[in-house]
Design a binder for these strands. Sequence first.
RNA 1: CGCGGGGUGGGGUAGCCAGGUUAACCCGCGGGGCUCAUAACCCCGAGAGCCGUGGUUCAAAUCCACGCCCCGCUACCA
Length: 456
Amino acid sequence: MEENRRLPENARNFSLKLIREGLKPRSLTRDVVWGIPAPFPGAQGKTIYVWMEAVLGYISATIEYFRLKGEEEKWRDYWFDGARIVFFIGKDNIPFHTIILPALLMASGEGYELPWTVSSTEFLMFEGKKFSKSQRVGIWIDEALKMFPVDYWRYTLLSIRPEVRDTNFTWEIFLEKVNSDLNDTVGNFIHRALTFLCRHFNCQVPSPPALDSYDRKMLEEVEEAKEAFNRILGQMRIQQAVQAVADLARKANKYFNDKEPWKTVSRRRDEAAATLNVSLQTVAALSILLEPLIPGTAEAIRRSLNLSLQEALKGVSEGLKIGRPQPLFRKISREETGVKPEKGEKEVGEATPEDLEKLGLKVAKIVEVEAVPRAKKLYRIRLDLGGGMVKQTVAGLKEHYKPEELLGKLVVVVSNMKPAELMGLRSEVMLLAAVEEGKAAILTPEKPVKPGSRVY
RNA sequence: CGCGGGGUGGGGUAGCCAGGUUAACCCGCGGGGCUCAUAACCCCGAGAGCCGUGGUUCAAAUCCACGCCCCGCUACCA
């Protein structure tokens, strides 16, 4: 790890520190019901900690993949003999990929290849907030794909990939990337070049009688862009790779503008022919550079060029007849983005009185509050549910209330919860609270009622 | 509490590890040009001195120290 300069700053320093401080014993089972049952003596009823087995899923998945293809042994090519294994993860998963997985691989003694690099990013946020499934912060993948083509999402997300710091997805940014970068810069260049070719050269790539210095410079730009792209992508700097492509399209637009083929085509047709030939070479290059970023679009470009990926790599040869160009992208409007989380809530379905019944909402009185040891946010709270029934809950209220503020309060609880365990403590009911922007307010009856009273 | 990452024009991102021309790029904004193209494209300009304080150095956004704030890890948000 010390020698591996490929590791991003966050993964490298964090992991090295852990090791230098000395690795501590770590339990590899959990008291959760779901998961793989632990087959060890004395671990009855426990399951294996996900990260201990999930990382091995990378290998299982490779094996499975090739088994289904009928190439039983092929998976070995990917895990032995100098294979370069790259992981793409968020910062919260660093130790599992830099320490636990390598440790497991080494412990097997079978010579598995260790991770070549772990491309760990910071976090992506959504409109300034953390993504949250339970609070429906974010966009669900099925909704996303119904709204816009997958390449719009890929392009935007790659261009704001949190490679150095936490980064923020906003609809504003989405509009900017799709409309300005994809549509206006990349899409429009390709479209103007192709339509011009069809209109004035019968959709056929002309041979360039002579290239002037500007033509040659543009071709050099294309080569440089390819090299830079290669280098940057090899360093997993995907964000910069996206930029490199957009930059090439900008240079191409400038080139096209400066050359003014719409003027030269009538008087100096040869010059226009050179311009168009060079432009088409650039379009082909774009289809290659876009392949790893937005493959659907890259493919679409090649379809209209009538080229395969292999052919596009070699460039566009004169005489090539292209298809009728179609715009690759379209602009999207603010209205189309809408804000969807509300819609998500509806999907839960309409509630019936029976559903409410099922929750067993009751008023309870807080009779005991105590901080859970070693926990930052948790209180263990005992509640009087009336009729002599006292139940316990573990609630994340420590950052919002002091114990004395809670003691004696009447609150609303879900009394029919399936018990769960947190920090080794049993939690039997759930205490209701309103949550807003990270602040919490517990629900309490407006006038005193007896503990155990039903809530409808 | 400890440890790791980060705080850069109005918005979004690079640069920092290997200090050094007028701090880069995109969007937005102001002005101009073009008219082939999806009112798209191109050019010019205004706008930050890089969280704060101190230090090292001929020279710091870049290195060091301290402080403030954000994010992550640590069996935790019922």
